[in-house]
Write a protein that binds this DNA or RNA. Structure first.
Length: 301
DNA sequence: AAGGAATCCAACCGCCAGATC
DNA sequence: TGATCTGGCGGTTGGATTCCT
């Protein structure tokens, strides 16, 4: 049995909001505060769905909404954040004071997304067919996007220390070393408790106590004899907060490639296992992210 | 000036996850 | 513990506006 609709649809107004409706909603929320959206229309005397009221308030009536065109700085920040987060409009909006997720989403679809599409079409011989309208823009094939919100991002298999090529892959070596110690391996193998915060396929493993909160480790079942590890990132807001506090510029300079994805991956890893974690905190988000993504954004400027 | 095409953007829809019962 | 409620999110729609011929 499906869930009941948030409100009965009969007799409710739809479409554009009138000035009177806006005034009623604004006054009600000013007096009673946000929340309880389901009951709000009835209490406020609005013939609107609660969901519609919430949307109207969040996207239009809130006093802290910033009106006017997206500035050049804001656009650059949106591009950087989208490169990092993908279509996580609410997260992106959270980093732009006064802008709503809906506004940013619309702006992306009508402005930036077009540029991206044009750029990719000029760079791809296979993409010479007519352009789809913005509304039907396909999801970007953004392989470097950080997925957040409790979605199991990926598992990264880190082979045993001896299997690594220290000369050709020092970054992975540095990243894995703090985790690949015998104490942790014993702890994992001898514990019957299920992993805390482990999602999906975890069985009888447990993350080490000294790991950062957004990182889980588990022994790969198929490779347990060779001491293989699976790294599982727990991507949520707390992860994002820590992630955004990393000074990527230092990492950028230490990685051999200017590739944004590699830089980001290395940044995550290094900030986790490195003793220097606490001194990697950078001054502000934009300056921290800039070096990583600049190389991929040059064409936009 | 007219009308069709293109674009913009507020609003809607369906789904999901966490909270609550 | 499962069902239901609630808030939130991303994708999509469609009316209004602007542009183009």
């Amino acid at each position: 049995m499906g869930r009941s609709p948030c409100c009965a649809k009969e007799g409710l107004n739809r479409g554009a909001w009138t000035a009177m409706e806006d005034r009623i909603l604004r006054e009600y929320i000013t007096t009673h505060g946000e929340g309880k959206w389901r009951n709000l229309p009835k209490r406020a005397g609005l013939k609107r769905c609660g969901k519609s009221c919430r949307l109207r308030w969040l996207n239009y009536l809130r006093p802290d909404i910033k009106r006017g065109n997206i500035t050049r700085d804001e656009e650059e920040l949106i591009i950087r954040l989208h490169k990092l987060l993908g279509n996580r409009w609410s997260l992106i909006a959270g980093r732009l004071l006064g802008r709503t997720d809906n506004e940013i989403k619309n702006y992306w679809n009508t402005n930036i997304g077009k540029k991206v599409q044009d750029h990719s079409s000029t760079n791809s011989e296979a993409n010479i067919t007519h352009r789809k309208p913005p509304n039907h823009q396909t999801q970007q094939k953004n392989t470097n996007v950080v997925r957040t919100k409790a979605s199991r991002c990926t598992k990264v298999f880190i082979p045993h220390l001896s299997q690594m090529d220290e000369e050709t892959n020092p970054t992975v070596q540095q990243v894995a070393a703090p985790f690949l110690n015998h104490d942790y391996y014993d702890q994992v193998n001898n514990n019957d408790d299920p992993p805390l915060g482990m999602m999906g396929t975890g069985t009888d493993h447990q993350p080490a106590d000294d790991l950062p909160p957004f990182l889980n480790l588990e022994i790969d079942d198929e490779n347990s004899n060779s001491c293989g590890f699976m790294v599982d990132f727990k991507m949520d807001e707390s992860f994002l907060s820590e992630f955004l506090n990393v000074d990527f510029s230092q990492l950028y300079s230490s990685t051999s490639t200017a590739n944004g994805g590699d830089g980001v991956k290395a940044a995550i890893s290094s900030s986790c296992g490195d003793d220097n974690h606490h001194k990697l905190h950078g001054p502000d988000f934009q300056s921290s992210m800039a070096p990583i993504l600049d190389s991929e954004l040059d064409w936009l400027s």
